[in-house]
């Protein structure tokens, strides 16, 4: 729980200059303050749900894109290169706008705000996941493939039972990073009207006109969320490490 002590300097900063602050907007002891606060926190569910859904999809897509990148055939490797280079080159915010406003006109499929956000986040992140998986898989010793070959395992079984379990242990810290990154990037989906943490804060600022206090609470909301996630990832890393001893 030492990690939560990092919150202390922030709290100190906030208490130090009380003259300029109007904490009443989010004071849980008053009715309006309590309502405002719970209004803000109610966005957390969407932030979490959207980020988790997007990361699950992007891990799966990333893995699928990583595999051709490991091929001996140049033409197959190029599928991976083109995907990664193109997707990585588009800013997330631009992708969100394009998926929400552009995609329906191109394909006729209209995604609601949630799925448009998830789709854009997952697509954007999948290029990075693909690179992480590729590096992780490439770090596994050639002898592991040869041993799998010599006990007659086919490609799918070799990947599923021999290579990926080892690769995933190695890339776990990087996957944790991506999840943190995803939680932060999900704030951008507020621009198309997704009712997540950032959007709720923005709406409250419009009605209460206390941006300083409200955005400060918003910062704390993300901070707490991400500290919880990163300690969860660390716990998982430790557990997987001890499993092998």
């Amino acid at each position: 729980m030492k990690r939560f002590l990092t919150l202390a300097p922030v709290a100190f900063l906030l208490s130090g200059c009380s003259n300029n602050w109007g904490w009443y907007v989010v004071d849980p002891t008053t009715t309006s303050g309590y309502n405002n606060l719970s209004f803000m926190i109610s966005g957390a569910w969407n932030t979490i749900l959207m980020s988790l859904t997007a990361i699950l999809i992007s891990v799966a897509v990333g893995l699928l894109v990583a595999l051709p990148g490991l091929s001996e055939k140049r033409s197959v490797r190029n599928i991976n290169r083109v995907y990664v280079e193109v997707v990585r080159a588009v800013p997330i915010l631009v992708l969100i706008l394009w998926v929400y406003y552009g995609l329906p006109q191109v394909t006729g499929i209209t995604l609601n705000v949630f799925w448009a956000g998830v789709f854009a986040l997952a697509l954007s992140d999948s290029a990075f996941q693909a690179e992480i998986f590729r590096a992780g898989i490439q770090s596994i010793n050639k002898g592991q493939y040869e041993a799998a070959h010599s006990v007659s395992l086919n490609y799918t079984d070799t990947m599923r039972f021999v290579i990926l379990p080892q690769a995933i242990r190695r890339i776990l810290p990087a996957l944790g990073n991506q999840l943190v990154y995803m939680l932060k990037m999900s704030s951008l989906v507020s621009v198309i009207g997704m009712q997540e943490l950032t959007r709720k804060a923005n709406e409250l600022v419009v009605s209460e006109y206390r941006p300083l206090e409200i955005y400060t609470i918003l910062v704390l909301e993300y901070l707490v969320l991400i500290l919880i996630v990163s300690s969860g990832v660390r716990w998982l890393e430790r557990r997987m490490q001890t499993e092998r001893d």
């Binding site: 070959h149 039972f161 379990p165 242990r169």
Partner: peptide, 19 residues
């Protein structure tokens, strides 16, 4: 597949699956 099924191999570096 047929040939692999008939042939086993032991390596210099053992190549056991560590996980």
């Amino acid at each position: 597949d047929k040939v692999r099924a008939n042939v086993g191999m032991v390596f210099q570096q053992f190549n056991l699956f560590p996980h």
